[in-house]
Design a protein around this nucleic acid. Structure first.
Length: 577
RNA sequence: CGGAGCGUGGCGCAGCUUGGUAGCGCAUUUGCUUUGGGAGCAAAGGGUCGCUGGUUCAAAUCCAGUCGCUCCGACCA
């Protein structure tokens, strides 16, 4: 392609609306433009990036035995009523009516449609497994779209589904897709980790998220240095071993004044005890029902764990009025002593005694609290956030926390949808059975953003070769100079004929403009054809990632280019490993 | 939805407090010069100041409403 004939509107300045790096650079590099909140037009260069990502996905899904199809974006409400999600999915599901007043929604995901399809065709265990996927635009009416392509309302997703006759078969489908995802993100040149994850509202038995490691990531993941364990902190279980030693004797509990101390820090400072000796008592509403959660003062409650423990759809911190009604004290003085709502205490508190806790009375706390002696704990549970002080739940090794961007998620759904929608088949005994499903998503447009979050510098994007819109950017520094122009055109044709995707910058611009745009666009290989180089019989080359510059002789350019290109790819592979 | 902020030529911003001629940089057009890291000079074009209503002799500026966008929280690929 010729730059002069491409629609690549690069920007010198960053539009005010962009906050995160990937959004700024996608706008500046002329890859996307916003239509309205959370909805973007992919310009030619941006679309090429999506196509590159999709190509890898298609190849690896095919290898894993998944076939591509394409389902409608508009879905009838009936199917969603059948699965029960018309009621449960919430406002993210954009609903509307047609001219005949029939109800529809825009597809945020396609479990219902695919299940309807498969139940209509598949009668026998002999027809299973069925493994299908599509790459399509999805719509979710997000509460708050943000960060450009990272969380749009309209976005491109690959969604795959498997239907199996047996649990073993379903697991096979699941793990084969899991393996395909590893190959996909590997090939895309991203540093990533598959992590154990909570299933959330999609439901199901177990799931893994694929996290691209990046500072800007909205998720936190915990992973072990000594074994393969990695999990989203929402899910990471905590290895708790009872100390086995008798707890110290605890002096009688004593109520002491703590005026104005309504944070753990205030209390521990005022009473001269470490935060770890304070019991933090938080009141939550689980589907509207109050529960108290106890964690050590220096820990955080994990509300996903709490949600699962309560079997609740929704868990929130209680508002101030509710706290006052339940504890008879303002926020900040709640404690487990004498509290008559269910109390979930974190396992970690088992080991200690002589705690400080709120007194359920304004400006007062109890000292010398023994949770066994002085309170009634409903159950001891794992409800807190994991920390780097915790040991790996698998092997006891050292844990590290890092940020990640969720680009893929695989779920073992089980029979959640197939039961609700009667997707059944006859087994070898002629007995009716329910299909076992898995579903598998990759945020294609989010992968593009995540790749940029992970790979950029102060000059612009640094695309991994597999994702870059072109393999090579060929700069013709002086199109009006016959020798330079002729050589640039010759190299352009020559590289194209060997299958290299080349963008030729043939614009009548000053060299500086071309260099700046070249770095901004992030195409991995830059070749510079200019008078200076040609005088020496060379064109200059630059590896966008490392910044390393070199010279390639014009005489055996094809071979020299191939060798250099392989070297640049090696650099990427080394960085990824 | 709760909290914070922003809307002024294509882009980035100033002006608003204290009402009175709409301004700067970039980009665009033309000419000349320049030509290896976002060129220089000269000239030119382009804005109902988000929208509606109000106050006023007079509103970008003050008031009310409304729409849109961004950021912080609950959601998720």
């Amino acid at each position: 392609m010729r730059f002069s004939q491409c629609y690549i509107p690069t920007l010198k300045e960053t539009p005010a609306e962009a906050e995160v790096v990937s959004h700024k650079l996608l706008l500046r590099a002329g890859m996307v433009r916003k239509l309205t909140s959370g909805m973007y037009t992919y310009l030619p260069l941006g679309l090429r990036v999506l196509d590159k990502i999709s190509r890898v996905i298609r190849e690896e899904m095919a290898t894993a035995g998944y076939q591509e199809l394409l389902m409608p974006m508009v879905q009838p409400a009936d199917l969603w009523k059948e699965s029960g999600r018309w009621e449960h999915y919430g406002k993210e599901l954009l609903r509307f009516r047609d001219r005949n007043d029939r109800e529809y929604c825009l597809g945020p995901t396609h479990e219902e449609v695919i299940t309807d399809l498969v139940r209509g065709e598949v009668r026998s265990y002999r027809q299973l497994p069925v493994r299908l996927y599509q790459i399509q635009t999805k719509f979710r009416d997000e509460i708050r779209p943000r960060f450009g392509l990272m969380r749009g309302r309209e976005f491109v997703m690959k969604d795959g589904y498997s239907f199996d006759a047996t649990a073993e078969g379903a697991e096979k489908s699941y793990w084969e897709c899991h393996a395909a995802y590893k190959r996909i993100f590997q090939r895309l040149g991203l540093r990533f980790r598959p992590v154990e994850a909570d299933s959330g509202s999609i439901g199901g038995n177990f799931s893994h998220e694929f996290m691209v490691l990046a500072e800007a990531g909205e998720d936190t993941i915990a992973f072990c240095h000594d074994c393969e364990y990695a999990a989203n902190v929402e899910r990471a279980e905590i290895r708790h071993q009872a100390l086995g030693t008798p707890r110290d004797a605890c002096p009688p509990a004593e109520c002491v004044p703590t005026p104005g101390a309504h944070t753990v820090e205030d209390v521990s400072a005022m009473l001269g005890v470490p935060a770890s000796s304070v019991v933090k008592t938080l009141i939550f509403l689980a589907d509207g029902k109050p529960v108290a959660v106890l964690v050590r003062g220096d820990r955080e409650v994990n509300d996903v764990k709490l949600k699962n423990l309560c079997h609740a759809q929704d868990v929130q911190m209680a508002d101030a009025a509710t706290v006052i009604a339940l504890t008879h004290a303002p926020v900040g003085f709640a404690g487990p002593v004498g509290l008559d709502i269910p109390v979930y205490a974190d396992n970690e508190l088992m080991d200690g005694t002589d705690y400080v806790a709120g007194a359920n009375k304004a400006d007062s706390h109890w000292k010398h609290v023994d949770l066994y002696r002085d309170t009634r704990v409903t159950s001891w549970v794992d409800v807190r956030m994991i920390t780097t002080e915790d040991a790996c739940p698998r092997c006891g090794g050292r844990l590290e926390l890092t940020h990640g961007i969720e680009v893929g998620h695989v779920f073992m759904l089980g029979r959640k949808y197939s039961d609700a929608m009667h997707a059944t088949f006859l087994d070898e005994n002629g007995k009716e059975q329910t299909m076992i499903m898995g579903c598998y998503g990759i945020g294609v447009s989010r992968v593009a953003a995540a790749a940029i979050e992970q790979n950029h510098d102060e000059h612009g994007i640094v695309f991994p070769p597999a994702i870059a819109p072109f393999d090579c950017l060929l700069l013709n520094l002086d199109p009006r100079n016959e020798a330079v122009n002729g050589k640039a055109e010759e190299i352009y044709r020559c590289l194209q004929s060997t299958g290299v995707e080349v963008l030729l910058d043939d614009r009548e611009e000053r060299p500086g403009v071309k260099f700046k745009d070249a770095d901004l666009l992030g195409i991995p290989l830059q070749l510079v054809v200019g008078g200076k180089g040609l005088a020496k019989g060379v064109v200059e080359c630059k590896d966008r990632r490392s910044g390393t510059k070199g010279e390639l002789s014009v005489d055996n350019l094809t071979q020299a280019f191939a060798a250099w290109s392989a070297k640049v790819q090696d650099g990427w592979d080394a960085q990824q490993a």
